[in-house]
Simulated scan of single mutants.
Amino acid sequence: MRAKISEDLKAAMKAGDKQRVGTLRLINAAIQSAEIEAKKPIDDAAVLAVMTKMVKQRRDSIEQYTNGGRPDLAAVEQAEIAIIEAYLPKQMDDSAVAAAVAAAIAETGAASVKDMGKVMGVLKAKYAGQMDFQKASAAVKGALG
C-alpha cells in the first residue's frame, strides 16, 4: 500500500495536481508518525487504521467548518477525504454491518453488554478499514442491550 501511495505521489507531482500532492504527503507523514510511535515499520492493517482516522478527523472538520459558515474550507476537507478513501477498502453498508455484528456475537457467545469488548475485538480483526466502528459499537450495544 505504501508503495502505491508513493507512486501516486510521484505521478501527482508530475501532473501538477497540488491538492492530490498535498493530501498524499499528509498520508505519508501520518504513516511515518505512526511508525515512529510504534518504533518499527507498521503493516497494512495499521496503515488502514491511520487512514481511517484521517478520514474521521476530516469529517469532524467539515462539520465544524459548515457550522462556522466556511463552506470553502469544508470543500477542501471533502476533497481530501475523496483522495484518502480511494486507498481504503469499500466501506460496508448498514445491513452488512448488522450481519457482521450478529455473526461476531454468535462467534463469541456474547450474552450481555459486558461481552462487548470480545465482540468488538472480533469485528476489528476481521473488518479493519471496512466498517465504521463507532456505528458498529452502537449496533453491538443495541443487540446485546
Rank of each mutant, 00 (worst) to 15 (best):
M1T: 02
M1H: 05
I5C: 06
I5Y: 06
S6L: 14
S6C: 08
E7G: 06
D8W: 11
D8R: 14
L9G: 03
L9R: 05
K10A: 15
A11Y: 05
M13E: 15
A15Q: 15
G16R: 02
R20A: 12
V21D: 07
G22L: 01
R25L: 14
I27V: 12
I27F: 04
A29L: 07
I36Q: 07
P41G: 08
P41A: 09
D43L: 04
D44F: 01
A45Y: 11
A46I: 01
A46V: 02
A46N: 02
V47R: 01
V47K: 01
A49D: 11
A49W: 02
A49T: 08
M51D: 04
M51V: 04
T52E: 06
Q57A: 10
S61K: 12
I62S: 01
E63Y: 14
T66C: 08
N67F: 08
N67D: 15
G69S: 06
G69P: 01
G69V: 07
R70S: 04
P71C: 14
L73Y: 09
L73P: 06
V76S: 06
Q78N: 12
Q78L: 13
Q78S: 12
E80P: 00
E80T: 06
I83Y: 04
I84K: 03
E85G: 00
E85K: 12
E85H: 08
E85T: 14
Y87R: 04
Y87M: 05
L88H: 01
K90M: 08
K90S: 10
K90G: 01
K90D: 09
M92A: 14
M92L: 15
M92P: 04
D93N: 15
D94Y: 10
S95D: 13
V97M: 09
A99T: 09
A99W: 03
V101F: 04
V101R: 02
A106Q: 11
A106T: 14
T108V: 03
G109D: 08
A110M: 12
A111C: 00
V113P: 03
D115H: 07
M116S: 12
G117D: 15
K118C: 07
V119R: 02
V119C: 13
M120E: 09
V122T: 14
A125I: 03
A128C: 09
G129E: 02
G129V: 02
Q130Y: 11
Q130D: 06
Q130N: 09
M131A: 14
D132K: 03
F133N: 06
Q134S: 15
K135D: 09
K135C: 03
S137P: 00
K141G: 06
G142A: 15
G142H: 08
A143G: 10
G145C: 07
